[in-house]
Amino acid sequence: MSLLTASNLRRAYGPLPVLNEVSLSVAAGEVVSIVGASGAGKSTLLHILGTLDRPDSGTVTLAGQDVFTLNDTQLAKFRNEQIGFIFQFHNLLPEFTALENVSIPGFIANRNEREVRQRAEQLLAKLGLTSRQGHFPSQMSGGEQQRVAVARALINQPAVVFADEPSGNLDSRNAEELHQLFFDLRDEFGQTFIIVTHNEPLAALADRTITLRDGQVVL
């Protein structure tokens, strides 16, 4: 059964079509990679599937919700509760510690503060960062910052995690560790990942690869 289904997505920026009738589905617990040349529409597709942008036409259903029938306020709440994000450059807030950065989405969701901090501590421990939970981003390596970003993406137990070039800013060793981490988290938590990547080894590891070319899925 599909966790996420996209049907006939179209998106253009001015006269430039970026997505043209894109349809796909992802099952719960799948690790799916989205690949394609620069300009193929990968990040645009990720932003629409992740509800950060709306399509010109088409639908996205996630966890049983037709997401674009929601208004902006409802959609922001749904996104916070059901979707996690991992970006290439971490996007950690520099004035907050690792523990605080991980906890923020839980606080936004108005969850119990003690429970949020407890889960944040558990996630950081799982990712080998117990000794770093009081450190600020500037005091951590790139690999450590990216693992903090992974913990933040998982804090609300989302239905799906979207990762946009997650290892693009890491050296080869840290990239390999991050890639393995996705599969460990899938195996332990049943977590679903949709990953946009130029990294061929990561794409090859995925359960399934979706290739975009000129705004369309290549079959």
Results as ranks from 00 to 15, higher is better:
Met1Ser: 15
Leu3Ile: 06
Leu4Asn: 08
Ser7Met: 11
Pro15Asp: 11
Pro17Val: 15
Asn20Met: 06
Val22His: 04
Ser25Leu: 04
Glu30His: 12
Val31Pro: 14
Val32Arg: 00
Ser33Glu: 11
Ile34Phe: 06
Val35Cys: 09
Ala37Cys: 02
Gly39Met: 03
Gly39Cys: 09
Leu46Gln: 05
Thr51Leu: 08
Asp53Phe: 13
Ser57Asn: 08
Ala63Glu: 11
Gly64Thr: 11
Phe68Cys: 14
Thr69Val: 13
Asn71Trp: 01
Gln74Met: 05
Leu75Pro: 05
Ala76Glu: 03
Phe78His: 09
Asn80Gly: 07
Gln82Asp: 04
Gln88Asn: 09
His90Met: 07
Glu95Met: 12
Asn101Asp: 09
Val102Lys: 08
Pro105Thr: 06
Pro105Asp: 07
Arg114Ile: 05
Arg117Gly: 01
Gln118Leu: 08
Arg119Gln: 14
Arg119Cys: 07
Arg119Met: 03
Arg132Trp: 06
Phe136Arg: 15
Pro137Trp: 03
Ser138Gly: 15
Ser138Cys: 03
Ser141Gly: 13
Arg152Lys: 08
Ala153Gly: 11
Gln157His: 10
Ala159Cys: 06
Ala159Tyr: 04
Asp164Ala: 09
Ser167Asn: 15
Asn169Lys: 01
Glu176Ala: 15
Gln180Asp: 14
Phe182Arg: 04
Asp187Phe: 01
Gly190Ser: 07
Gln191Asp: 07
Thr192Cys: 04
Phe193Trp: 07
Ile194Leu: 12
Ala204Asn: 13
Leu205Ile: 00
Ala206Arg: 08
Arg208Ala: 09
Thr209Asn: 13
Ile210Val: 15
Gly215Val: 10
Gly215Asp: 06
Gly215Tyr: 07
